[in-house]
């Protein structure tokens, strides 16, 4: 990816109707923490670079897996992304958040790699479907007719005394969640990874994936429900 592409990713959240000359006060997309780390990075602080890698590497790997064939290729794509980040750091002006900028580079590179290897087509064939008309929760779990139509016919059963800590300690539950996430269609997986696994704010996810908030929540809810259903099955 060339420097122009890196710059264009940064500026993607800008209003094109505003002339650059009029943007006297440059809006900053950086959080205070990002502002600090960016200053350290630009001064060549290797510790800051390590922190940045530790913070975002996981999300980048999981996102790259959406576009390429296997883990090994995803690792390569992420390494290329970090190289591009290092090389373009001095040109980054902080108009979007650092994370949005880095993820934008990753998506561009991963898509490019996926297309080049023509493997994205193969994935689609194996992916579970994401039909826009599908309801997140199986409609047959609700009463269809009568006074109680729309109310639970087969309600969820309580997961006895489950807490996040207990669930995370249960290999069966974590494995089933990981598997459920891995098998989500790409459009659902990317929102779940960004929003829930990596904790990116909804607005930033929309900006990054260029989707509306309505669309985000349609996808996110389907993704969460599929993962919930997988845990429900695993816990029996």
């Amino acid at each position: 990816m060339n420097a122009d592409t890196v710059t264009s990713i940064e500026s993607m959240s800008h209003n094109p109707s505003i002339s650059p000359k009029l943007q006297v006060v440059k809006p900053s997309g950086l959080t205070k923490a990002e502002d600090t780390i960016l200053a350290r990075l630009k001064h060549g602080d290797e510790g800051a670079f390590d922190e940045l890698v530790n913070q975002h590497h996981s999300a980048l790997i999981r996102m790259a897996m959406n576009y390429v064939a296997d883990r090994e290729v995803a690792e390569e794509v992420v390494q290329d992304t970090w190289m591009a980040v290092i090389e373009s750091l001095n040109r980054f002006e902080g108009r979007s958040s650092l994370r949005t900028w880095i993820c934008g580079i990753l998506i561009h590179k991963a898509k490019d790699r996926g297309v080049r290897e023509k493997r994205h087509t193969t994935f689609s064939a194996f992916e579970s479907s994401d039909d826009d008309n599908d309801e997140a929760v199986d409609p047959s779990r609700f009463q269809q007719t009568g006074d109680w139509a729309g109310h639970w016919a087969f309600p969820p059963q309580p997961w006895d005394d489950q807490t996040p800590e207990k669930l995370l300690a249960s290999k069966q539950a974590v494995d089933s969640m990981q598997r459920a996430i891995e098998t989500l269609p790409a459009t659902l997986k990317e929102v779940l990874i960004l929003r829930d696994v990596e904790g990116v704010e909804a607005k930033e996810v929309c900006e990054l994936l260029k989707i509306t908030e309505t669309n985000l929540y349609v996808r996110l809810h389907r993704a969460r429900e599929r993962v919930r259903a997988a845990v429900e099955t695993a816990l029996g």
């Binding site: 890698v53 996981s58 999981r62 996040p164 969640m177 779940l192 904790g199 969460r224």
Partner: peptide, 13 residues
Amino acid sequence: LVCEVAAGLPKQY
């Protein structure tokens, strides 16, 4: 619970 557990899934380095 699913959201909270997803946030606690193992990090990759």
